[in-house]
Amino acid sequence: MRGSISRLATQSVLQNGPLHTAPLAILPPKPLYRRILRAHRKHLDSRMRLLGDEYVKSEFRAHRNVENPVHIIGFLSEWQMYAQKVEGDSWRGAKIEEGKVQKMSDQQIGQLYELMQAIKTEGEPGEGGQGDPKI
């Protein structure tokens, strides 16, 4: 009995894996929004900042009327983890968690692939060459 309880506890810890890196307190939307915009200002170069700012603005706007508490908590905690990553400059080269990829729809996978292609194109020289990406 005791064994199974601790196994259950372990399972739930594993299922909630990403949460243990998140702070216990979830910031309310406005302070979080401020924190993200400040993190962009301090840690991103101007092009990335523009892109990041536009994205976070549209996401917060798109979700401002959400009422399901589970969705709200999910939204806030994911953005809070994002803010921590930007602040710590630890997002470069980070990988998407396997679980998240599995939960994606075909359309989302397609979008991710298109994003990857777009980033690759961006790195290549413009004059039709297949040369080395210019960095």
Binding site: K30, Y33, R34, L37, R38, R41, K57, F60, R61, R64
Partner: peptide, 9 residues
């Protein structure tokens, strides 16, 4: 309220 945050930023 989001605009206001943006203005303050």
């Amino acid at each position: 309220s989001l605009d206001t945050v943006e203005v303050v930023m």
